[in-house]
Design a protein around this nucleic acid. Structure first.
Lengths: 339, 339
DNA sequence: GCGCTTGCACGAAACGTTTCGAGTAATACA
DNA sequence: TGTATTACTCGAAACGTTTCGTGCAAGCGC
């Protein structure tokens, strides 16, 4: 691999001059610029990223930490961030936590070892204890995406999770459902706690607090499938199921198929998080949509600003607005119970 | 950020001694090891990746270049490779080409600037011209995944693409289909050319060469939707459609929905590449499955070996075997034509 | 008791950049 | 004509590591 020294030699100038033309960081005569550029092209020189990072103290690296890139919501986020970062001259590390806190910390450590300039973190815990751990490990500008973390000074871009649940529950209740099951993720992360809490509140307000069934499925498709099966096998199965995430909704759909229940005839389905091509499912799912791309855009925009030292006066806290998209998976329950 | 110097000072030893205990690269007394480790823990020291990379000439970085992480096939590959690499002490850069050659080259350049130790490349072109470009830009161990590239010395792990198509066509023909449409990707990449070539061959062998319809859809879901619509609107629409990739199959499904055609009653569907949860589609798709995880495992295994200088005598060339999975989307055509 | 190993710790050089102070020639000003 | 200014160019230090040769003390065989 040729180095800047080789370029300098071939162009007959000093190393510092080559650096100056590469970075346009000092005035250089046209003649020399030409010679240097020719030399660079001739030997195929490319500056050594690590050397650059070491000396300048700027790694030009950004870390993106998310639960599972396999989930379309997150892969869309990753694509957007990759594109924006590249345009801004940053490279991106994308890592999966699999919802495992220890793994999240391990990844954070690797990011720190690489001296990333900033971090976008879709965290898997929201409690203050986790917040303390994060603040201990993180030393760079960071924006939290999707879920908030208590007691933490980071910018946050998230959904209005409470509204999302309310939209879904109100819709189901308006349709006449009374036995509604909620498939939740795991306690301790705001995406779950706010969505679940708000759903329960809404149910209670409609006088349905007692009838509500909650099943935890760890945000996992497979787990949702399993609890869905149980739910459906019960004595009085719900007439509607509300899944707090797209992957869990898929698990529920699978459970319906396995249990040979029709949707929406036997049970209505709603989820949070839209599908890329809703029409390939039948029935097409009614969902509360989450604007993945806009959220990612906001997050990376804030982060890049912050890295450029245009420090925000206070931490930004953005809540994006979800939208109910009514399609075919929700309908009135087949037989209504006496009031 | 604390440096190794700070650790040395606090532990009262030389810098080189700290390095020795961190890397266990030289004998150090128990007593000193203890002091150094305490110091590291106390000040939260983490070695500077770039400095390490610069001095040792080993970036411990691996690049993964793929068309689109949004595609479940590729995101599965990415997850597997991330996991294996981490276990081996490497970090991973994952980048999307969007099937754009120029962009592929740009990414390759960034990878070279980072001095990655190895590359896994799912290339978007297979011609010798592209091969030359690659060989010019690439200076590290590389394994090609999914598609081969002509005139190139790299290890290759791919599907037996010819067999994949044959499986699909034979199945369709056995069912009685004669007007079969093939939705292809784009000319110039082996995944397309081998699959398409083999499909056409198989069709010809069955005496159906004249009836075959081929539509190019650039491996894009949306494009497949569009050509699917056209196909279906024709005077004599095909009774079966064979999509050369999973994303294109989705486009075709959408086209059927839009054109209000039933599957498999009006038209049978087969694709190459399975879905994560086939049962959520109805009808469930008949597909030729591609073993994403095994292929990724093979690729990263070979790459890691090669990086460790256990050089292979010759370039490995692995072809994985596809399997036809018959589900509900294929059936005999409704009315058969006179022979 | 002498020279040899062996085990451990150290200092300095080197990796490939950027940065900064200093030097030089040409130009402008008085 | 002498001096201040400008426009370039240069050399050397520094970033945080690893690596290698050196030094020193203790243990060994004779």
């Amino acid at each position: 691999m040729p180095t800047i020294k080789d370029v300098a030699q071939r162009a007959g100038v000093a190393i510092s001059t080559v650096s100056a033309v590469i970075n346009r960081s000092a005035p250089v005569s046209e003649d020399v610029i030409q010679r240097v550029e020719d030399a660079i092209a001739a030997i195929g020189y490319l500056p050594h990223g690590a050397a650059k990072a070491l000396r300048s103290g700027d790694s030009r690296l950004i870390g993106l930490i998310l639960p599972d890139i396999t989930n379309p919501f997150f892969s869309q986020v990753a694509r957007l961030i990759e594109t924006v970062c590249m345009r801004a001259g940053y490279m991106t590390f994308v890592y999966n936590t699999d919802e495992d806190v220890d793994h999240e910390m391990r990844i954070l450590k690797m990011m720190r070892a690489q001296r990333v300039a900033g971090l976008i973190l879709i965290s898997t815990r929201s409690d203050a204890e986790h917040g303390r751990r994060l603040m201990q490990e993180i030393t760079v500008p960071t924006v939290l995406l999707g879920s908030a973390v208590d007691g933490t000074p980071y910018d946050t871009v998230k959904l209005d999770d409470r509204l999302a649940s309310r939209l879904a529950i109100d819709h189901l209740v308006a349709l006449g459902h009374r036995r509604i099951a909620v498939i939740a993720g795991r306690e301790g992360v705001s995406t779950n706690d706010e969505r679940l809490g708000s759903a329960l509140e809404a149910l209670a307000e409609h006088g349905l607090g007692a009838d509500a069934v909650v099943a935890m499925a760890e945000f996992k498709q497979q787990k949702a499938f399993e609890v869905g099966l149980q739910l459906l096998a019960g004595a009085e199965p719900p007439t509607a199921i509300f899944a707090l995430s797209n992957f869990m909704l898929i698990g529920i759909i699978r459970a319906l198929v396995a249990a040979r229940r029709a949707c929406p005839r036997d049970v209505s389905l709603v989820g949070i998080g839209d599908f890329d091509w809703p029409e390939i499912l039948s029935p097409q799912m009614t969902v509360v949509s989450t604007p993945a791309v806009e959220m990612a855009e906001a997050a990376i925009g804030i982060l890049l600003d912050e890295i450029a030292r245009k420090r925000h006066p206070a931490a930004a806290r953005i809540e994006c607005v979800p939208r109910l998209i009514i399609r075919e998976s929700t309908a009135a329950p087949r037989l209504s119970l006496p009031a």
